[in-house]
Design a binder for these strands. Sequence first.
DNA 1: GTCTATACTGAGATAGAC
DNA 2: GTCTATCTCAGTATAGAC
Lengths: 195, 195
Amino acid sequence: MARTQGSHSDITGPKVREAALRLFAEHGYAAVSMRQIAAEVGVQAGALYNYTPDKQHLLFSLLHEHMEGLLAAQAAQPVPEDPVARLEAFCRFHIRQNRARPQAVFISYMELRSLTPEHFAEIGRLRDRYEAGLEAVLKAGQATGAFSVEDTRIATFAVIGLLNAVNVWFREDGRLTLEEVERLHWDMVRRAVSA
Amino acid sequence: MARTQGSHSDITGPKVREAALRLFAEHGYAAVSMRQIAAEVGVQAGALYNYTPDKQHLLFSLLHEHMEGLLAAQAAQPVPEDPVARLEAFCRFHIRQNRARPQAVFISYMELRSLTPEHFAEIGRLRDRYEAGLEAVLKAGQATGAFSVEDTRIATFAVIGLLNAVNVWFREDGRLTLEEVERLHWDMVRRAVSA
DNA sequence: GTCTATACTGAGATAGAC
DNA sequence: GTCTATCTCAGTATAGAC
């Protein structure tokens, strides 16, 4: 054993992040105390400061990691030529990502206002990059005549809003599979923007 | 003068509610202190307890008042016979209401989790009643063949999500009038659910 | 790396003078 | 109805022993 029994940084670190993510998503950043997070992990509050300089940075770091992962996954997706196929790919990808990391997605919408202005700007830039992907698809389809949207910017927000509705009600053990949910929502999006 | 100069309950009461609504919307319920609210109103923290038994009840009371007002306004709307016209009326009404009380709408989505379970259930019931109006329209249109939605429950959430997207970006002094925003969104909703 | 202990600050809420 | 003063508790964060 290269490590002593007392050295748990490689275990405790991830546990701190998981606990914080879960508690922030459930109760909100401001309502969660460092003591609560520590209790969840099974350490004393002071020990958390081996893993984060402060509470604010813990939130920022969770959001940042989530957004970077999202953008990396987006970049790894194949990009069909046809705008309609590209829009379908975006819709399905977005729904799947939302369900794969429900807590991270949740706080990335709810806790932006809990960030310092600098951190807020940083996360905002990453989100804009993600949504720009959708707007580009809508613009491309508008150019080919496949889509008919008067304002691609507004349509972008509308599509995101429609897709995010899934998060309000979807349950893993519900009557619909994720594939069915994807199909139903893609169908609505397609009709909403098609020429 | 029937009142002494020191009696300000008819002035301070509303000011407390306005300040709380504004601060809760801006920073979140948990992040706002009674002292902040008091400072905003221009009194000491202790004086707030002439108007609310505690902070939790203040939030609940704001949400309750908002939902009751929303349902009353909804009930006062004329209800067209034709499902398509009814859906258009709902969409335009929903967007107008959202813009008329942006802060109340915002906390009614964001701060549900800050309510006690009893208060949460109470507000949830009121919201369900509001959204049931939309689902009824979709069902009616489905029956007449005007709409084509596989699942009216899911479509209800999708439509609400699409319409709420307006709140993310709309600015009173932006390039679009509320009428144009209503039309653009009604157009997308109509296409998304039409046969 | 974690603990205990604690400094310091601010929270919600109440009591009693005016 | 509001103020001042205060109680009690919990918050973030740090210091130093182990």
